[in-house]
Amino acid sequence: MYAQMIKSEATQEDPEKLAAFQARIDAGEKIEPKDWMPQGYRKTLIRQIGQHAHSEIVGQLPEGNWITRAPTLERKAILLAKVQDEAGHGLYLYCAAETLGVTRDELTEMLLDGRMKYSSIFNYPTLTWADMGAVGWLVDGAAIMNQVPLQRTSFGPYSRAMIRICKEESFHQRQGYDIMMKMANGTPAQKKMAQDALNRFWYPSLMMFGPSDKESVHSEQSMAWKIKMNTNDELRQKFVDQTVPQAEYLGLTVPDENLKWNEETGHYDFSQPDWSEFFDVLKGNGPCNRERLAARNKAWDDGKWVRDGLLAHAEKKAARRVAAE
């Protein structure tokens, strides 16, 4: 998912307060920033929301790669709007994280020096125009699986950010599928390109949900706190069940020879992705890790004079106003 392998923090606090806190969550109440909360809840949320925000921002890079090379002006305008949305999504989430007592620039610094992560999926390259279709259809599709239930998460600002994001996310997935339909119904070369994009993005998309967490202690705590709503396996299964018929409609083949409908379970059986690849990408050894972080660092460094200049200008204006009063 956009937030992967989030470790929940152990909490050693007044058992009475903890019980009252859990009771509020169980009753479906929203926790707001000024309310008492366990340190572990606060820290886990900063890590989770921060990672989600970083994913939105870094996620602009693989798609930004195609803005100047979109095949038509309309496609270019659509892609531009989509990438702009991602910036907005990052911003909503940073704001939610900030209510927990971390500043925007601190979060950015932690991304840039590698203390915080972003989703593994954005370390894969976008090689052809069909990848814009596959990213919208599969990557945003996988993200939606997680984000829709998170609209009901216990932390108020996070829930409100998710509600805004979900409203916009379905545009993302549909524009991606629209590109795939066009390619799949195009020339044989275009269809081949669409199939190639599916082949490359299928397993990395399944990895987005993270490894199985059926027996994970962290996962259990996060689910009790309602900052994680489903297990990784549940969401992955749901994604496969939804996506396979969509691939069939396109006339494309999911690159998994073990994929088949299971009459008994009412779900598709499918192969797990290569988890050693996943851990390797998380460690920084994916195809684009270095490039992505270098691009974000360059943007931050190159933008420094703008940030400083605007702040200096604002302070000068404010000082003049005070002097005039």
């Binding site: 900030e98 927990l100 007592g101």
Partner: peptide, 9 residues
């Protein structure tokens, strides 16, 4: 406005 004081940096 809602950030608790002890969480402020």
């Amino acid at each position: 406005p809602d950030t608790p004081e002890q969480a402020m940096k």
